[in-house]
């Protein structure tokens, strides 16, 4: 979606126009759902979090200060929802704390280098992405898949731009190793 169109739709949504907000939902949901998936092993959990993020966004639009920052605001909200849900589920497969996330050993069965992948034989590239620690997955999905700048991804994930750069590099390296 063009930035100008986004700004207008966000403005109208803040005024209370449900149709404009509906357009935002339709346009941004696929990307938001993909981002939420970086926290969970199932798409079902990712979709629940996506839905909650939109509801919270609709209810909190009045607190949005910069319309141009709507997308990072929405993604940050989604991130908080995902982390809250993971915290609530002590037995969830994913680890909670960001710092811990970075250190999380990936289950052997999902280690990128253990995924025997040949070009043309990939049934599901998500298997590779799911093998990455959540922090690396987030950086890859936000920047490489969704085209966010390092700055925007840093705002969403609450880390510095250089941390995003480092995480993305590690994610890309793992992907390359899985593919080759």
């Amino acid at each position: 979606m063009e930035p100008t169109r986004l700004t207008v739709l966000v403005g109208r949504s803040m005024e209370g126009d449900p149709e404009a907000f509906g357009e935002l939902v339709t346009a941004l949901t696929p990307g938001l759902r993909q981002y939420c998936k970086t926290f969970f092993s199932s798409w079902h959990d990712a979709e629940d979090a996506t839905q909650d993020a939109w509801i919270r966004a609709w209810q909190s639009l009045g607190s949005l200060r910069e319309r141009a920052a709507f997308k990072t605001w929405l993604y940050r909200m989604a991130r908080n929802i995902c982390l809250d849900r993971i915290r609530q589920r002590a037995n969830d497969q994913q680890t909670v704390d960001d710092e811990v996330l970075e250190q999380t050993p990936v289950p052997d069965r999902e280690l990128p280098e253990n995924v025997a992948v040949q070009r043309g034989e990939i049934a599901d590239a998500w298997q590779i992405i799911n093998g990455l620690p959540s922090a690396l997955r987030q950086a890859f999905v936000l920047v490489a898949l969704q085209g966010m700048s390092y700055k925007e991804a840093a705002l969403v994930t609450n880390v510095s731009e250089s941390t995003v750069r480092g995480r993305l590099a590690r994610a890309r390296n793992a992907i390359s190793e899985a593919v080759s």
């Binding site: 907000f21 509906g22 339709t26 996506t50 898949l145």
Partner: peptide, 21 residues
Amino acid sequence: LHSSTPEHQPEAFSQRILGKI
């Protein structure tokens, strides 16, 4: 990844969200 997001019907999902909202 761009071409295949598994288990996803974007329109149906967006409609479900809009229904909730």
